[in-house]
Amino acid sequence: MSRYPRLALAAALICICLPLANAGAGKLGLGREAKPEEIKAWDIDVRPDGQGLPPGKGTVAQGEPIFQEQCASCHGEFGEGKDRWPVLAGGHGSLTHDRPEKTVGSFWPDASTVFDYVKRAMPFGNAQSLTDDQLYAVTAYILNLNDIIKDTTFELNQSNLASIKMPNKGGFYDDDREQTEKHFWGAKACMKDCKAETKVLNRARMLDVTPDAKTGPRVD
């Protein structure tokens, strides 16, 4: 019941506002104008060009205790990953290996992604709990674990984060399946006497040919 008085009040406020901020810009007149403070509170994304970075700063040294307290229980003291939690550091040069290790340092193309992701989703189960200064510091520390920022006194901030160069920045290209896999289109689908014999090469049940899960690629 206690909801109704508040609803009535809200309705009254909306009625007062309506003539001023009448609904959408479009022809249907649906929704209402979002207030700057509403957008600001929810607009947490950060782009590689730095758009969205909040004011703030933090050094590698400041990030270390935050990381050890907030992150290390899953990601390990050195970002090596505990149990099955993601490995954050290492794996440099491993992308062509049989067992690639895709970490922030070996794989991620943009430093902004670390800030964006940690801000929105970490610590796991306590999202959006770190201050912006703590986020800069933790990001600096993770980059330090990957030897991308070597100086522990380095201060990461709103104006220099976008200039951090990531080792695998050039390692990505847009979907080219329609060119490189063109032969899958219009492929001849043989229907009769397509091959002489068929051998079973491997079986899900042959446990001894399936190596340990620890070395497998990751999907999350």
């Binding site: 990953g81 149990d83 099955r84 939690w85 993601p86 490995v87 049989d98 067992r99 399936t210 190596p211 340990d212 899960a213 620890k214 070395t215 497998g216 690629p217 990751r218 999907v219 999350d220």
Partner: peptide
Amino acid sequence: TKHAIDGSA
């Protein structure tokens, strides 16, 4: 090899 589906093995 065995593939884990999350950052993890």
